[in-house]
Amino acid sequence: MTTSKEATLHVYGIKNCNTVKKALDWLTENNKSFEFHDFKKEPATAEKLEEWEQHVPFETLVNKKGTTWRKLDKSEQESVVDAKSANKVLLENNSMIKRPIVEYKNGILVGFDEEAYKTQL
């Protein structure tokens, strides 16, 4: 894994997530300098979620396919109706944030899409 204090990319996720591993491998293979932020060690903050929501809708950040979402009771799932309610649930369950999130100069990428990485990074 490449890390640098001068990294232009910041990658947020969980190290043992397969999608995060694919993204980190792609960044390394393509000589992209990045700093990795592990949600297990550095939980996302309300400010960071709000910053990301300047680039993507809150729905993009909520991983509804993962086990963390499925473990929520139905009323909790149904309570996620806007950014404020989503952020409350995401702050309590960082592993429910879709990952990886890659911050770059012009915005963010959520998830791993090789074509988007090629064109945006």
Rank of each mutant, 00 (worst) to 15 (best):
N94P: 15
V62R: 01
A46Y: 15
M1L: 15
N18H: 13
K65C: 11
A44R: 02
S79R: 02
K32G: 13
L109V: 10
N16G: 05
K22C: 10
V20R: 00
L24Q: 09
T68E: 03
A44T: 13
L61Q: 04
G13Q: 06
S4N: 08
S79W: 01
P43N: 00
E35S: 15
K22T: 14
I14D: 08
E76L: 15
A83Y: 11
K84Q: 12
K74L: 13
I14G: 07
T68D: 01
S75E: 13
G66P: 05
N87T: 11
T8C: 09
N87D: 11
Y104D: 00
R99F: 01
V20P: 02
L90I: 06
E53P: 02
K71V: 12
K5V: 13
G13I: 08
N18P: 10
E35W: 15
K84R: 10
D82T: 10
L121Q: 06
T60F: 03
T60G: 08
E47Y: 10
N30W: 06
L121C: 11
A7R: 01
T67H: 05
K22R: 06
K98Y: 06
E115H: 11
F36G: 00
K84S: 09
T68G: 03
P57T: 12
S95E: 06
I101R: 01
R99G: 03
K105C: 07
N18Y: 11
D73G: 14
F112H: 00
H37K: 06
A44H: 09
K21C: 09
G13T: 09
D73L: 09
N30M: 08
F36Q: 00
K118F: 02
L90E: 00
N106M: 10
K22V: 12
G13S: 10
K65W: 10
N31W: 07
T45C: 04
D25W: 13
W52Y: 08
G111P: 12
R70M: 11
K84H: 11
D38F: 01
V80F: 04
N106Q: 13
M96F: 02
S33K: 09
G13M: 05
E35H: 15
L24M: 14
K118A: 12
K74R: 12
F36Y: 14
K88W: 08
S85T: 13
F112K: 01
P57Y: 03
T8P: 08
N87P: 03
Y104M: 03
D38Y: 06
L24W: 04
V20Y: 00
E50T: 15
E53G: 09
V89N: 05
L90K: 01
E50A: 14
G66A: 01
E59H: 12
S75K: 14
L121N: 07
E78F: 05
N94C: 05
W52V: 07
K84I: 12
N93W: 00
V102R: 09
V89Y: 00
T19K: 03
G107Y: 03
T68R: 02
R70I: 08
M96L: 03
V11C: 07
E103F: 04
L61N: 03
D113A: 10
E114C: 08
K21F: 06
P100G: 05
N87R: 04
K22F: 15
F36P: 04
Y12R: 07
Q120E: 13
H55Y: 15
T3I: 14
P57K: 06
T45F: 03
S33T: 15
G107W: 03
V56G: 07
V56A: 06
